[in-house]
Nucleic acid binder design. Structure first.
Length: 824
RNA sequence: GCGGGCGUGGCGGAAUUGGCAGACGCGCCGGAUUUAGGAUCCGGUGGGCAACCGUGCAGGUUCAAGUCCUGUCGCCCGCACCA
């Protein structure tokens, strides 16, 4: 057969067939082992980029492979379709966000289909549609009901450009992670989810996730930031009040010479009220407030502070301790107050030096028991022995941490506590394009949750998109004015919408039961599919999305909605697609459009390149010439298979095969083994593809062989086509059909390798002298150590190499190598 | 500062358990075919004339090290005045 490889025509043909026949539609089937494969759903920005192509190509190889392996594969796709860009587009172009979003979805759906990814499109979800966000709101109500959603006034992160508050996780280096504007602090009343209640479990259960990259687990660990220490109560001088501080170093407590508060600590105002310090303190607070978050939290910031005129008493030694305020203490960690031990903490050291505060050594190095303050150029923070610490003198400081903690608990002067860096999740957004928070404020009854049967709280359409700082929902009278579900009196609606990360924290469960109008997801159905067996996406979601989704899943588990307390069993974080060493971006002008590549070479080439150029978790450099190379490879396969499409021969007897035939047969079966293992165990698609290329090279040569065995060649051609099909599904399906197969490749079983075909009669033995390669010798396969040594001693090459030499030792590794150790 | 990762030809990368370094592909060189170009096919391609030398650098363990250990340099990522 002589036919040109026309990628676009072939791809359109098979994509249409898959769509019409709903090839990838799945339903729960208790008789089949399920496999839930999920790629992170995209934000419908308008166009697919190469990062998407990479993400979904990786997923599709696994999905198609598992399907051929006989699994009941759930492979869904949808849209994370609430969010700011839609609203910005609305302001800029006077298009309603829903219109903008839906048309983007349509375009990207078309682009995804042109890649030939094996999705069950009947399960498509879009988080911006009422049938979805109805349940996002329902989840909010469950959290509210169980005390996990609450409203409080707090200093929150405000992005002046996006005109909304941000969660801590969305602030990167003091700037908005979206638009990179400097984030301001604002005192606002906002809704939070109590993720801190789950801090310990979110931390502990990372151990349940051996299939996650340790990098991601470490990042989450750091973000949760558990630290153990003690809270110590210091009595305020001439008062009944006590002030508690958190410390991880109770062993230094005898060295406390001052105490510092965060400037915004509420007690400060109380302490200085009516004193000579009041005005200065207020000025200092104002100055700190005007600092941006970036400057405020930067480690290089000059330490500043002031004495506020009061003292506390050290509960252990009765020392009188000055009270200060400073810029280096953070209000929302620990108690917002810190004990100052300049000799054994570098920050306190710098602060005390600057302001001339007393210092007192309480830990000395073992080799210098008389350490003097005057000799110190920096704080002594290494291990040492306690001095000047009363009953604890002479104890190693590591042991003293426990001893002093015990003593504090016995005397009720303090207690062991655990602190987390993790803060509650701020979910209010002063924006339109999100799920409305289902809460009303009644003139009489106060904060009232919307009854479940009244969901969804629909987004109104009569809204003005003049971004002002308040939610645009406030401009809709029809939305705002409502009645109280309890008393029927006048009430107004909550005008903030939810952070879009709320929507994406449960979408993987919705896929299991996407059409359910009564429930977010049916327990029985979702239990069949959960957990997600393999989740694939960018590492940029390591903290935000992956932490929030874990939190939600744990809540669902606790509320009896799901059997699982972790959502994603295995996680693969793919690398970025780079061009010229940096991430493809419009501003850098280094974007390669997937559509252009598909138009030029076809989807199979695009997929093949992106999978071949680098292992999935590494960054990938785009290379036009290498794309061309992949296209050439597909053409070579095409020509090879079609050139031999009419060969005769159905079966062969292994005993009839020549040595050369057997080598080809071994190559076929070792390739089946390698490709299967590379896909299934290691996600090493690049080496799987290179193995297929090798097999192709072998078969090209074998096809030219006059004495070839036709049935064997046919076996090889079928193997190469099937093995390549998860990577380049369209061309393989076409070749399969052109070579007379009635059942499509997608419905064919994945091949099993024949163990016997891998066996060899003879092996090449590497001959080394003192570890250096000297030559190679053929030997019978399967010789043990002794047998190999006997065999090699009869070889001429051995005799030449050892002639007249002092042979100390011969190391034999069966089937591999012989190393002759020679001295002198 | 703390935590994690990575350094291999001109390039992307391979070497799965300590056992032939550089698979596969790109690029490059030469040849065939072609009026020419493209496409295709064949051969070559780490360095060195060679002995040999080669996986960031310096040591170590081992019969044998890209792989293990110690130190060091460089790059990337995460967290960071978190008490």
């Amino acid at each position: 057969m002589n036919k040109k490889y026309e990628a676009q025509a072939i791809e359109a043909k098979w994509q249409q067939k898959w769509e019409e026949e709903k090839t990838f539609k799945v339903t729960e089937d208790p008789d089949k082992e399920k496999y839930y494969l999920l790629e992170m759903f995209p934000y419908p920005s308008g166009n697919l980029h190469m990062g998407h192509v990479r993400n979904y190509s990786i997923g599709d190889v696994v999905a198609r492979f598992k399907r051929m392996k006989g699994y009941n594969v759930l492979h869904p796709m949808g849209w994370d379709s609430f969010g700011l860009p839609a609203e910005n587009a609305a302001i800029k172009n006077q298009v309603h966000p829903v219109k903008w979003t839906l048309s983007n979805m349509e375009n990207m759906r078309r682009q995804l289909k042109s890649l030939g990814i094996s999705y069950d499109w009947d399960r498509e979800v879009a988080s911006c549609l009422p049938d979805y966000y109805k349940f996002t709101q329902w989840h909010f109500l469950q959290l509210y009901k169980h005390g996990l959603a609450y409203k409080k006034k707090a200093a929150v992160n405000w992005c002046p450009s996006c005109k909304t508050v941000l969660a801590n996780e969305q602030v990167v280096d003091g700037a908005c992670e979206r638009c990179h504007s400097e984030v301001e602090k604002k005192n606002l009343s906002q809704w939070f989810f109590k993720i801190t209640d789950y801090a310990q479990r979110l931390l502990d259960d990372l151990d349940k996730l051996p299939g996650w990259p340790s990098k991601v687990k470490t990042m989450q660990e750091n973000w949760i930031g558990r630290s153990t220490g003690v809270e110590i109560d210091f009595k305020l001088e001439n008062s009944d009040k006590t002030i508690s501080v958190f410390t991880t170093r109770p062993d230094t407590v005898y060295g406390v010479t001052f105490m510092v508060f965060a400037p915004e600590h509420p007690i400060v105002e109380e302490l200085v009220k009516g004193t000579e310090y009041e005005d200065d303190v207020k000025a200092f607070q104002k100055k700190m407030q005007s600092l941006s978050t970036v400057d405020r939290t930067s480690g290089d910031l000059e330490k500043e502070g002031m004495f506020i005129g009061k003292y506390v008493i050290n509960p252990l030694n009765g020392d009188r301790v000055q009270l200060w305020i400073t810029n280096y203490v953070i209000m929302d960690y620990g108690t917002g107050a810190v004990m100052g031990v300049p000799t054994h903490d570098q920050r306190d050291f710098e602060f005390a030096k600057k302001y001339g505060i007393d210092m007192k050594v309480v830990i000395a190095p073992e080799d210098n028991p008389d350490l003097k303050v005057e000799d110190m150029a920096e704080a002594f923070v290494d291990e040492g022995i306690l001095v000047d610490s009363d009953r604890f003198n002479g104890i190693n400081n590591k042991k003293a941490i426990e001893a002093i903690a015990d003593y504090l608990e016995e005397t009720k002067l303090g207690r062991r506590v655990v602190n987390f860096r993790l803060r509650d999740w701020l979910i209010s957004r002063q924006r339109y394009w999100g799920a409305p928070i289902p809460i009303v404020y009644c003139d009489h009854c106060g904060t009232v949750p919307v009854p479940e049967e009244q969901l969804p709280v629909l987004l109104p359409t009569d809204v003005e998109f003049t971004a002002g700082g308040d939610s645009p929902l406030k401009t809709s009278e029809s939305f705002m004015d409502t009645t109280c579900p309890i008393c029927g009196g006048h009430a107004v609606r909550e005008v903030d919408t939810m952070d879009t990360f709320v929507c994406s924290s449960w979408y993987f469960l919705r896929y299991t039961d996407p059409k359910n109008a009564e429930e977010a997801f049916n327990r029985e159905v979702s239990d069949y599919w959960m957990n997600v067996d393999q989740y694939i996406g960018g590492v940029e979601h390591a903290i935000l999305h992956l932490m929030y989704a874990r939190f939600f899943q744990k809540v669902f588990y606790d509320l009896g909605l799901s059997k699982s307390d972790e959502p994603f069993r295995n996680l693969l974080t793919q690398g970025m697609v780079l061009m010229g060493g940096s991430k493809m971006s419009k501003s850098l002008g280094n974007v390669v459009s997937p559509e252009a590549i598909i138009d030029k070479y076809g989807a199979d080439t695009a997929r093949l390149f992106i999978l071949f150029a680098a292992p999935p978790e590494k960054d990938l450099e785009w290379n036009d010439a290498a794309v061309e190379g992949c296209y050439r490879f597909l053409n070579r396969i095409w020509r090879l298979v079609l050139a031999n499409s009419d060969i005769e021969g159905d079966a062969y007897q292994v005993s009839d095969l020549t040595k050369e035939d057997k080598d080809v047969r071994r190559k076929i079966h070792s390739t089946i083994k390698k490709v299967s293992e590379d896909i299934n165990d290691r996600f090493n698609f690049n080496t799987a593809i290179s193995a297929i290329m090798e097999l192709n090279n072998t078969l090209v040569a074998y096809a030219e062989n006059e004495k070839k065995n036709n049935a064997l060649l046919k076996e090889g051609l079928e193997a190469v086509t099937v093995l390549l099909s998860p990577f380049a599904p369209h061309i393989c399906e076409e070749l399969w059909q052109l070579t007379g197969h009635k059942v499509a490749i997608v419905d064919s079983p994945w091949p099993e390798y024949d163990k016997d075909a891998l066996s060899v009669d003879e092996v090449e033995i590497v001959l080394q002298v003192n570890g250096k390669l000297k030559g190679k010798v053929m030997a019978p396969a399967g010789l043990d150590r002794g047998g190999l040594e006997d065999f090699i001693k009869d070889e001429d090459m051995f005799k030449t190499l050892t002639d007249g030499k002092n042979v100390i030792k011969i190391v034999c590794v069966p089937n591999k190598l012989v190393n002759i150790v020679i001295k002198g």
